[in-house]
Simulated scan of single mutants.
Amino acid sequence: MEDFNWLQLLNPEFYILLEFGGIKIGLLVVLFIVFAETGLLAGFFLPGDSLLFLAGIYSETLMHQISLGNDFLNVTVFALLVSIMGIFGNMAGYWFGAKSGTYLYNRKDSFLFKKKYLYQAKEFFEKYGNRAIVFARFLPIVRTFAPVIAGIVSMDKKKFMFYNIIGSFLWSFSMILSGHYLYQLFLDQFNIDLKHYIEFIVIGIVAFTTFPVLWKIFKKRVHIE
């Protein structure tokens, strides 16, 4: 940690390869981040999509201490663990929304909380209805606040859990398996190690996932003007 730089907190690879006392704790950190990003309002700035994609690339490293001795089983179990944490995260967000009611709309902006994100998630939820719980998984910021909105509007708990489970599994398995098998494909077929291009991968994923949100904001401002 002598060479620690605060900018590392924006790099998903930092969390994956993190060690404490010589022990690799990347798996625990990744699982916590998934829960935090979907269950804690302060988690919206955490690297969700890029983290899971890179976690798929590093799945062998992450599962080293609890390896099942089979590559497919290891990556499947890892994706399953992430899915479960995502489900619990959304449940926490829903519970918070149900208990807080309109409190968040009256709360002042702070470094970790911006009211505009709440309104964006509300508009997204109103547009897509129950399916928003699934779609929100693939959109930064929105996925943090969507379950909170579901709790505030008292979405039926059974329907919420149904879409919560589907969304979490789709998000986790698609991102992790894509990273895992694309890494193997590029290495075996083209002799290209994607680990050497982590920065470009992260930038590409962040740009791809945030573009829909930024485009919607841009269109709204143009319409207003």
Rank of each mutant, 00 (worst) to 15 (best):
M1G: 13
M1P: 01
F4T: 15
N5W: 02
L7M: 10
L9S: 07
L9D: 03
L9H: 05
I16C: 01
L17E: 04
L18K: 04
F20E: 15
G21N: 07
I23Y: 10
K24Q: 13
K24D: 08
L27I: 14
V30A: 14
I33K: 03
A36V: 05
T38M: 06
T38G: 06
L40C: 09
G43E: 04
L46W: 12
P47R: 09
P47W: 02
P47F: 10
D49C: 00
L52D: 07
F53D: 00
L54S: 10
Y58Q: 02
E60P: 13
L62F: 10
F72R: 06
F72G: 06
N74A: 12
V75H: 06
L80Q: 00
I84C: 03
F88D: 06
F88T: 01
G93M: 12
Y94G: 01
F96V: 13
G97M: 08
G97S: 05
K99A: 13
G101V: 10
G101T: 07
T102K: 11
Y105T: 06
N106P: 03
K108D: 14
D109R: 08
F113S: 08
K116W: 11
Y117L: 00
L118C: 07
Q120R: 13
A121Q: 05
E126G: 12
R131W: 15
A132P: 05
F135D: 01
L139D: 04
T144L: 02
V148L: 13
I152M: 03
V153P: 04
V153Q: 10
K158M: 03
K159A: 08
F162G: 04
Y163G: 15
Y163E: 07
N164K: 05
G167N: 08
L170G: 05
F173I: 14
S174N: 11
M175K: 04
I176A: 09
L177Y: 15
H180N: 08
D188Q: 08
Y197L: 12
V202C: 00
V202Q: 00
I205C: 11
V206F: 13
A207P: 10
T210V: 12
F211N: 02
P212K: 06
K216N: 10
K220S: 00
R221T: 15
V222S: 02
H223I: 01
E225H: 11
